[in-house]
Every structure is written in C-alpha cells, then in structure tokens.
C-alpha cells in the first residue's frame, strides 16, 4: 500500500499522535471548554495508520504480530488508542484523548527504536496458545495504560477543584467520582486479562516444558505486576484507599510496567527472541 512498509505506517501514526499531543496543549490552555472533535479525529487517523501497520506486519508474518518487543509495544499503544476511541464516543470522555496522546507519542517513539524490532532465530510465539497468552497480556497492559491516563485526568481535575480554579467547573470533563470509577474498572479489566494471560502462559509452559512454572525473571516480574495491581484494587475496595492515592498508584504502577517491561524481557530466556 503506497509502497510504505509497516514501520513507515507506524511512524506516520506516531507523527499524528505527536500532532494530537501538541494540539492537546492548546486544549489544556483553553481549559477544555469546547467539545473536542478535532483531537478525536486526529487520534482516529493515527489509529487507522497504526492498524494498517499492525495488519501489514500480521499478514507478512501470517500470524498475530506479537513476536518481539516492537510488536508488543505497538500492540499496547493500539489497545490504548482503540479503547479511547470507544470511550470518546461519549462527549464528556472525549478530552481523555488530550491526556492519552502524550502517552501514545512517548511509547510510540520508544517502540521505533531499531533494537526493539529484531527477529531472533526462533519465532517467539510459534503456537496459538502462546500468541493468545501474549496478546491477552498486552491487552491488559493497554487497559492499565488507559487507566493511568484516566487517573491522570482525575488528578488534574481534583487539583483544580482543590485550588478552586474556575477551569474545574467549566471544563467539559467527567466528574472526579466517575473518573475514579473508570480508572477502577480499567484496572479491574486489566487484572482479569492479565490473570487469563498468565494462566495461558502456564498452560503453554506445561505443554512445552512439562511444568506450569519455571524460574524466570519475566515470570517473576509478571507475578509481581499482578500482585501490585491486585494490591491496588484490594486497598481501594477493602481499605478505602481511593481518590488521589489510588490515582497515583495507577500511574506509578503503569510507569513501572513501561519502564521495566523491556529490561525484564531481555533477561528472560523464554521471552527473549
């Protein structure tokens, strides 16, 4: 298509996400007062290019394109962008895009680093179960990512309310109680997906290596991430640790995931291509 490779399409998508991030600064300065269709359409265009990039890669490999760190990363960003498109159908959630686009830009730029897009001697996810394991887990990280974006939106609105800024009242943003609920739901959905993905991983291990568990950095890391998110949700549910603490927890946990995901992947014998 147009003689462009899948990476070129993804590069274009990242450029559009970048334009959306720049436009978001103007929206922020204007106090989110007007309905935000331009940013929604920009992100829709970005998602279209992003989808073409993933489809081209998938067709060229003849399987789900989650075989190395580049593909895994673009899968996560695609999940965030696609989930936002659904949420943005409700006008009050459309400004979520202004918070999501800088995240999409940052992760997108990171994904474009050449070293991430290496194919090893063996395909990393040769079986359907392994592909399903990887894609379910990446969908979970996408949900965590959008949850952290909603949490950031919560913190912004909450801070404006605390400081009695007029922007809090006049911005077309959802109420903070709803933002907290949305963050909670995204994290819960992400945790369920992560659980399913980990169980699939265990089943794959049993089939390939004869045991449900194997000492591996990435497995330990994944279990740790699972515990962190479970802990966050339990603290909110049982010990009333909601509001700002929960929002900071959601953001901090996702930052941890993003910053350490690649490192632990490289340390893992099972996950490294």
């Amino acid at each position: 298509m147009l003689g462009l490779s899948d990476r070129n399409f993804f590069l274009l998508a990242v450029l559009v996400y970048g334009a959306s991030a720049v436009y978001s600064i103007f929206l922020w300065r204007k106090g989110f007062r007007e309905d935000n269709r331009v940013n929604y359409l920009l992100l829709l265009l970005g998602l279209g290019l992003h989808t073409i990039a993933m489809a081209k890669r998938g067709f060229s490999l003849a399987k789900c394109p989650v075989n190395n760190l580049y593909e895994a990363t673009i899968f996560v960003t695609w999940t965030i962008a696609a989930t936002y498109m659904v949420a943005g159908l409700w006008p009050r959630f459309r400004f979520l895009g202004a918070f999501a686009s800088p995240v999409l830009l940052a992760i997108g730029v990171f994904a474009l680093m050449p070293k991430l897009d290496m194919h090893g001697p063996k395909p990393q996810f040769a079986h359907g179960l392994a592909s399903l394991h990887a894609s379910t887990i990446l969908l979970a990280y996408g949900a965590f990512g959008l949850g952290s974006v909603a949490a950031f939106m919560y913190l912004t609105q909450e801070r404006d309310l605390k400081h009695r800024r007029l922007r809090a009242v006049f911005a077309l943003l959802p109420p903070i109680q709803r933002l907290e609920a949305v963050t909670g739901r995204l994290l819960t959905g992400g945790l369920v997906l992560l659980t399913v993905g980990l169980v699939m991983g265990a089943l794959w291990l049993k089939r390939e290596k004869g045991a449900y568990f194997q000492p591996d950095f990435k497995i330990y890391w994944s279990l740790f991430v699972w515990c962190v998110y479970l802990g966050l949700l339990v603290l909110r549910w049982r010990f009333a640790q909601g509001g700002r603490r929960f929002a900071w927890g959601a953001i901090g946990s996702f930052c941890f995931v993003i910053l350490t995901f690649w490192g632990f992947n490289m340390l893992s014998d099972i996950h490294r291509p």
């Binding site: 809090a168 009242v169 109420p175």
Partner: peptide, 9 residues
C-alpha cells in the same frame, strides 16, 4: 450545583 456535578457522578 455546578460544583457538586463536577465532583459527584
């Protein structure tokens, strides 16, 4: 009322 609607769902 505006304030309440900014805070509560």
């Amino acid at each position: 009322v505006e304030l309440a609607q900014t805070i509560f769902t």
